[in-house]
Amino acid sequence: MKFKAMTAIAGLLIAAGPMAFAGGADDDTLIINGEIEMISKTAAPAHLDGVFDEIVSGWHFRTDETQALETDDFDNPAMLFVDQAIDAYDVVEGEAGESCASCHEGVENFAGLSAAMPKVDADGKLVVMEDLINECRTERMQADEWKWSGNDMQSMVALISLQSRGMPMDVAIDGAAAPYWEQGKEMYYTRYGQLELSCANCHEQNYGNYIRADHLSQGQTNGFPTYRLKQAKLISKHNRFRGCIRDTRAETFAEGSDEFRALELYVASRGNGLSVETPAVRQ
């Protein structure tokens, strides 16, 4: 492994007792269903010059048993929820008498969309997948909004993102997206909370090291929503952002806040080039 500079966290870890540095990402290859070969390690995008040489999917930081859960669509428990979304896709809801399928026809028409999300919409506003789904629900279907991290919403985000599985992440960071991207980058390097930790402290300076018994990854979002064994359900990006910031003992931003949209764009751009892995399985 590359030995990185010790930060406050690494100092804490050492204070907690001797521990083995088990090293960074493993060298396994991520192939799904024995046929879809994923780009799970690749050269870092240009904007990360001087930060990373290589970007690495969180899959490489997990144990063999957790990794195996993602390599077969039947073993992957997230697919239970994808199945539920396949059913929901055809369900007519709301005053307008429409389902997702009424306008969009087959869900495969969404291929490529999530690889380019978040994006700036025609009104100049940064939108993420949950925004697109809720806009369809409220405006076109005249149905109720779905709760951001609710099972309905995250199952549908997973189903739509699955259509892009294997495609490289490619979010735009220039043009109209630039100010949002800058805002997200600023947040990424801001130390939050009583522990004064930024995203970068763990996921840039210490990936491959341990935080207690957790193996820190680069914090890539290319596999979200991800089935987390801890909660045994699909977890949204914003839920995870909130968890991280809360763990710094800070007041966190809300799921669906503009701050988290901007952070989502910036973090997604750090994974530009990695395959969309949705729905991933993590610890």
């Binding site: 997990r62 144990t63 048993e65 957790t66 859960l69 064994l229 801890k230 045994a232 610890q283």
Partner: peptide, 11 residues
């Protein structure tokens, strides 16, 4: 497994 990353789901 010798080590389980999460006790919630141990194969």
């Amino acid at each position: 497994p010798e080590i389980a990353e999460n006790g919630n789901t141990v194969p």
